[in-house]
Write a protein that binds this DNA or RNA. Structure first.
Lengths: 218, 218
DNA sequence: GGTACAATACAAAGCAGTTGGTATTTTATA
DNA sequence: TATAAAATACCAACTGCTTTGTATTGTACC
């Protein structure tokens, strides 16, 4: 009898989701409703709400969007890990940004998922993390030159390989110095490349470049 | 007998969804599964897949994400309207960008939804569009101070009227000097307001602010 | 082997915005 | 009518990026 404790399989995995996109939350909620071992006990539209919820709820697992207004995902993560270290946290993000994954790891997240993940992946990561595992995306070895291949639109501007590579980092909000460090280049080199990118794309300032990147989904 | 044709109430609204975020699609699908009059007959992860699907399917309605890799939403829209003019199309976008809404209208879309829409809104727009209506987001007439009113999301940050107004100009890529000229203010005043905005929104540089504006549909 | 391009590196001048202050006037409201 | 908040204005030090230069090395191709 002692060893036949099966009750824990009946204990549902309680989950709170924090994301500012209502539709996304609702979708996720519906998606998880079909799972007998998972229960979404509450949702939050931003970091503040999330933290507030923790006064009254103690979920096993929190799905935390990184890009939330005000108190962003990482700040929430930090506070959860400070005050409720037992709660597992999976960070959610739209984009595959390596430094965010790294940050999530170092800040103590238990998992990391892209929003375009498959349902199966989502579930397995959630269950794994709840079971005490850490789940982070596999880091692809080579980043460079993937942009030109995947984006025919960009080809018309005839960016060089290096320029295309830099664009990837710029997209991820790296400063010139950070790119230089990361690629073991002089900041002068980075500035030169950046200058050439701006010229080829006919843009005038960092914000315009950022808009270009977002608008064309690079 | 002739007037008793009730069958059309039994005809489900057939829908195809195209979006590159699998999780979003799945969520949407689950969300719609509860609706007896709506049937998601297929989904596509990009524009190419979407167009391919139309060889074999003729849905009543297509939900089309604008930001898809390769063939983007607008290109798909154009082809649908050229070759299958009877199919209704609702464009989906993450961002509230007026020019995209305008573009959707002129390119012949039947509706436009933000991804952070409520379920009720989604359903009503889908049904309205299927019924032959055009549904597009209401375009705010006056620029200044309309932001706080129309965007409950922004309220949490408690921006003042002036700060909200400035945000509108920042969104349009005005420099501080241009805003100062336009509003007959000293550039110092503009800088102060801007400083306070950055503080309240917890942002560090112009690009972050820009991302915030775009990301949260301001 | 010469030409063109890519990649690298450097430097000075300048601009736009940030940060952290101070300070005055206007306006709402308790 | 106090009091707080909002709006305005100013300033200096600083950061990050842009612009306009120059210059060297490597590499691909005719």
């Amino acid at each position: 009898m002692v060893n036949l404790k099966m009750e824990n399989t009946l204990e549902k995995l309680s989950v709170i989701i924090a994301d500012d996109h209502t539709l996304f939350i609702n979708g996720l909620r519906m998606l998880l409703q079909g799972e007998p071992d998972i229960e979404v006990v509450s949702v939050a539209a931003n970091g503040k709400e999330m933290l507030h919820l923790l006064h009254t709820h103690t979920p096993n697992l929190v799905l935390l969007d990184i890009n939330m207004p005000g108190i962003n995902g990482f700040e929430v993560l930090k506070r959860i890990k400070d005050y409720y270290p037992k709660i597992k946290v999976i960070m959610l993000s739209t984009y595959n940004e390596e430094h965010l994954i790294e940050k999530a790891k170092t800040e103590g997240a238990n998992g990391y998922l892209f929003k375009n993940a498959e349902k199966a992946e989502l579930l397995s990561v959630m269950r794994s993390v709840a079971g005490g595992q850490l789940c982070f995306p596999y880091k692809q070895p080579a980043v460079s030159s993937s942009l030109n291949e995947t984006d025919p639109f960009l080809k018309q501007f005839q960016l060089t390989k290096r320029e295309t590579e830099l664009l990837q980092f710029i997209k991820q909000n790296f400063t010139n110095q950070q790119m230089a460090d990361h690629l073991h280049l002089s900041i002068y080199t980075v500035e030169t490349h950046r200058k050439n990118i701006m010229q080829k794309l006919n843009l005038k300032n960092p914000v315009e470049l950022n808009r270009f990147i977002i608008q064309y989904n690079l």
